[in-house]
Design a binder for these strands. Structure first.
Lengths: 207, 207
DNA sequence: AATTGTGAACCTCTTCACAGCT
DNA sequence: AGCTGTGAAGAGGTTCACAATT
């Protein structure tokens, strides 16, 4: 299969959410036009995105909301559950441990790793906190597949190295620094400050 | 000036961070090659991004770290401070209220808006919580320029409408739904679940 | 000698437009 | 008649490659 762009994957996540919303409202059928309208894209974009993975609609009718939701779910790996950990029990780490959207989509936060002895042994929103030094032991044992880094920028690369060493193949990085990982390890940077700076750029520009 | 792509803006934010890091380490000069290496892009990309805004380097030598940091800061609007509010005092809202990276880059969280009477009148990490019904009064009075939405998906659009009504021109949306805003209002969606779904897509694909 | 700044080439993503189904 | 699926065209973003400069 031809390589799929990250933009397409992100839009599929959006379509998935919009379809859930429609299903909750009791809607059975949706056209690419309606879906596009809900997500602020063009209908051609919706159809093209889907076309990379197969044909899901009926010409003249549109798409069945449940079927399409499930099919996008299979593409995104939302048909199964994932074992996830958070590294860093600071403000961001704690908020993510309680973030219902992860649970709802199949991402189970199994435990939190931290180095602060005062936090180790406690639970945060029901999630146990373990010593980061146990990463190499716990990650394989608990079958952890995705790690979320929520530590300060200066320790982020060291944490990433530890995680990769322990066998992690996917990292979501909230620390404001670009991290280097070996070939074959997936990394996504989520930098909340960068998004707000895009807003200040636009505001600043128009005055 | 030709329209600048969002990708360029995001990369400028990254360069800004890398330059700060270099400055903290006492580095005075950097080449596009070094900066590119730090941020995982090509050196041509760094130079092209900068070229949209002017010429900042010295041929044969590279860029002065402090000067370039400050110049990117001016482009992104980081040379001044911004008045920001958060709507929603849940887990995400509270974590954002304590997020140091905002403070550090000039984004001052002035207050939080919520509808829960038990939260109104309290402070969260030193930030006061006010009744959302006071939006139209407080936003102009306190000169609020950017609003962060951290409420559940189902109330997000109503909150956005209220904010726009109150004169807000820039919104950072953490709710997992695409929001509609009038022409002239800037909106950025930050969906943490979407990023993790991109990871599960890649993991799912390779097995 | 080293490195920037940039037009041109290249590549990727988006939109168009219409044939093909239902 | 209505809407999908898709090749082709178009737009936009990235990389190349080299003249210009220090």
């Amino acid at each position: 299969m031809r390589r799929i762009s990250e933009s397409t994957i992100k839009r599929l996540s959006k379509y998935y959410r919009s379809l859930e919303h429609l299903i909750n409202q009791g809607v059975d059928t949706v056209s690419s036009d309606q879906l596009a309208e809900m997500d602020g894209v063009t209908s051609a974009q919706v159809r093209k995105d889907l076309s990379f993975f197969g044909t899901f609609g009926k010409r003249g009718l549109g798409y069945n909301t449940r079927t399409l939701r499930d099919q996008i779910g299979e593409i995104l790996g939302l048909h199964r559950r994932w074992n996830v950990i958070i590294v860093g029990a600071g403000n961001i780490g704690r908020a993510l441990a309680a973030y219902q959207e992860f649970q709802k989509r199949g991402f189970d936060i199994r435990f939190i790793l931290d180095k602060d002895p005062r936090k180790i042994g406690t639970t945060i929103h029901g999630v146990p906190v373990h010593d980061i030094s146990r990463a190499a032991e716990l990650i394989p044992k608990e079958n952890i597949e995705i790690a979320i880094i929520a530590v300060p920028a200066d320790s982020a690369q060291a944490v990433a190295d530890t995680l990769v060493e322990a066998g992690i193949k996917a990292i979501l990085n909230f620390a404001p620094r670009s991290l280097k990982v070996p070939e074959g390890v997936h990394i996504k940077n989520e930098n909340m400050a960068i998004e707000i700076e895009s807003l200040s750029y636009h505001l600043n520009k128009n005055q």
